[in-house]
């Protein structure tokens, strides 16, 4: 195990250094721009996205009725991660002037539909969960009375 781990670390460092070597002829301007994009994601995640998600989770666990929590968490997870994944097409950027064949779908509309579908999922799963707990409670009630 020790040898495997050492090998993996050495191999990984080697690959990383090869990557840096491939940048040896990049201009200062290119490297600055690259560094901005390398650091930008980490900062954006650790300083903005993650704290916001933690705050939402904290709030939801106190505000939402019990049967809503699980389904809402799934809906929010799917909604949040897909929104990030689809940010490029939702941004309204890109494409080429005079070329309608690249970004040819109503992306924002689809995103609104996606959001509504996931809200509906959270509600349906909450109703289903409440029924489940109720019938379980009823069973416990009958069980104890007999």
């Amino acid at each position: 195990m020790r040898a495997v781990r050492a090998l993996l670390v050495a191999l990984g460092v080697g690959c990383g250094l090869w990557g840096v070597w491939l940048m040896r002829d990049f201009t200062r301007e290119q490297l600055t721009s690259e560094a901005f994009w390398l650091a930008g994601g980490v900062i954006l995640h650790d300083a903005v996205l993650a704290p916001v998600v933690v705050a939402i989770g904290y709030g939801a666990s106190r505000v939402l009725p019990a049967h809503f929590r699980s389904g809402s968490a799934t809906a929010f997870l799917v909604w949040g991660t897909l929104t990030v994944a689809f940010l490029p097409v939702l941004s309204g950027q890109g494409g080429k002037p005079g070329n309608e064949t690249i970004l040819g779908k109503p992306y924002v509309l689809s995103w609104v539909v996606l959001t509504l579908v996931l809200v509906a999922y959270a509600v349906v799963s909450a109703v289903w969960r409440r029924r489940q707990t109720r019938s379980r409670d009823m069973k416990t009630l009958h069980g104890s009375s007999s």
Partner: peptide
């Protein structure tokens, strides 16, 4: 070229991470 170079850094640091966390 940058997508290629950074890919090596990404896969390398992933392999290091797996080695550390094995």
């Amino acid at each position: 070229r940058t997508h290629e170079a950074v890919a090596w850094v990404a896969i390398g640091s992933l392999v290091v991470h797996i080695g550390v966390k094995l």
